[in-house]
Design a protein around this nucleic acid. Structure first.
Lengths: 339, 339
DNA sequence: TTAATCATTGCTCGCGCGAGCAAAAACCGG
DNA sequence: CCGGTTTTTGCTCGCGCGAGCAATGATTAA
């Protein structure tokens, strides 16, 4: 007797719908219907099926289902920036909302802006849609990639998009930047500068354009711009410190409007620890995104919060069939101590 | 003539191996071989096939391949904590390394510690393995979930695991905490406290145990412990401020050893902005993970960096078939100004 | 030149399920 | 109890590909 080994779990082969059907005494398709909402099936058979399924530990195989139908209930989330903690917040919301709708999330790292490769690997898994969440990627790059490898649907998240055949779900940057500009004006700031990331050619200059445009409209003057070398705090620190070193009086800004929170934190550090300028006494600083650390007392960053949950819900609606076009959702200015 | 509309891209149906085979004048299986490394195929046919594939924009359908074989080349990454930016670093490394090996990443949000649900949705997509990256999840929970829904392989990442049939890839916490303790001792600190997260029952107490044990071994005294309410900076701030308020002299610690960087940042803020205690003059603070912001001048956090890339590579090796057991990789103490 | 050997190619069968329709069963008023 | 409905159930076919073997052609030793 060799009853020593436990029933080798490695050799276990999961139950199929046929197994359940046999046990429940119905056909395979009745089993399928039992697992489908709004299916035409009697309470009695559904109960029978569910009992049998429970006993066998059966769950429908989504892979086979994807192959048979042409929906995979899988969406690719394509990311090109893992330095901004705000991306993590987005991932959390998106995975939460999408999984509640029964959709899976394929996370794709868009290394070195290889949009084509990213969308390719997504399409190989038959994703229902690819959602691009990024700052660096270029619209033209995306358009080309979209043309070459057809993902059924391309959705640009947290940014507007000029790519045709593309939906965009974003927060209204123009409104946001106006709110920031008005807040600074109301606080008596008169010589702001905009601190942007390196990708001057990409669509992230939307915030920049909105801010500069609104400020000019209200004051007649166009603020200067600092481009830092990367979307990380270190680059922002170096860039801001380098640009502002030695500026005094009217040549020095009295506010820095930053493209996002990470850059803003770097800017604050540059002002305080490199230039010895008080924030907000001498220079006000604003960010964008409201990352978790923005609220830390060390920074107290005044920033703008995007309605991520609403955006995620809208995405789910689009993927679910309800919900139609691109949207621009309103966000909210979060005033803290930095401005 | 209605050549006005471009060939509707929506109706486009991707080429299959059969299409390529027809165009190249070979059989479907020769096409498959052309796309497989180390397959038995002549140079000539491979070139023919590749040319035809290029022309049709064919790429193998991984979904169908997964169904036919029993490898999906899909790995579930199960996360239960999206507040720690370090998780984003891990995601970046893991997606990068795994995608280079041809594996896809399914991101699963383990909401409310629902390990069973998370593993279930992973298994429904036939993942080759589920990689759990978390702080909150409980080993028993995991064991139960593993039992119920068999994922072929369960791998615990960045933590050791006592669950049977499980592999673990982690940094050696014991060595790490010893390094931190020794560093503090060398700097003359004598009354440290450990700042831990809320999950006293979970396996994250490994770091705590390692630190307390080593400190006791070297000094004969057991440091106190502060449990904060959550793994976020706000909770850490509140918890540390609340616990230390009013302590003076010998009753006050001269060092706070924190379970991770997020808690450490909250602790620093508590000391500086609530208690008015200088860091590191009055109290030294250490963290764990070396998140990007740890190096910001506002904090200058002394911390411990895990070898994420090596850990990811080891994971890829395990999934690829080479690479066998659990590992404990060495990390590195990063000394900055906070301790 | 012939049989043996090897590289290369083709094929049968099935992975687990869904769409869409046909068959069966249940229901209903007269 | 019957024809007409409506609900419920079953079935054929195929999604795109892989495992593993059989067949084909190429190559070599005898």
């Amino acid at each position: 007797m060799e009853d020593q080994d436990p029933p080798a779990p490695a050799a276990f082969s999961p139950a199929t719908a046929d197994d359940v059907a046999a046990l429940a005494g119905v056909s395979r398709w009745t089993v399928a219907r039992a697992f489908k909402k709004d299916a035409s099936i009697s309470q009695k058979s559904r109960r029978k099926v569910m009992a049998a399924a429970e006993k066998l530990g059966y769950v429908p195989d989504l892979l086979a289902a994807s192959l048979a139908s042409d929906r995979s209930n899988l969406v690719a989330l394509v990311l090109d920036d893992f330095e901004n903690p705000h991306k993590l917040v987005m991932l959390e919301r998106l995975t939460r909302v999408l999984s509640r709708e029964g959709m899976g999330v394929l996370l794709v790292n868009m290394l070195g802006a290889d949009a084509a490769g990213a969308l390719l690997s997504a399409s190989q898994r038959r994703v229902d849609a690819a959602v691009v969440i990024g700052t660096r990627f270029d619209d033209r790059l995306l358009a080309a990639a979209l043309e070459a490898r057809r993902v059924k649907q391309l959705i640009v998240f947290a940014r507007t998009s000029a790519v045709p055949n593309t939906l965009s779900i974003a927060c209204d940057d123009a409104v946001a930047m106006r709110a920031i500009a008005d807040h600074l004006l109301a606080a008596g700031r008169r010589r702001p500068m905009f601190v942007a990331g390196p990708d001057s050619r990409s669509a992230t200059l939307e915030r920049k354009a909105a801010f500069l445009g609104h400020w000019r409209a209200r004051t007649g003057r166009t603020p200067g711009v600092i481009h830092v070398a990367g979307y990380d705090a270190g680059s922002a620190l170096a860039g801001v410190a380098g640009t502002l070193a030695g500026r005094e009086g009217e040549a020095a800004p009295d506010a820095l409007v930053c493209e996002n929170d990470i850059i803003a934190l770097g800017a604050i550090d540059a002002l305080r620890y490199r230039l010895g300028l008080g924030v907000p006494e001498r220079i006000a600083v604003t960010g964008f995104d409201d990352i978790p650390l923005a609220g830390a007392p060390a920074y107290g960053l005044t920033t703008f919060r995007q309605p991520i949950t609403d955006m995620a819900k809208h995405l789910a609606r689009i993927l679910g069939g309800t919900g139609r076009g691109s949207v621009l959702l309103p966000g909210r200015l979060v005033v803290r101590t930095s401005a």
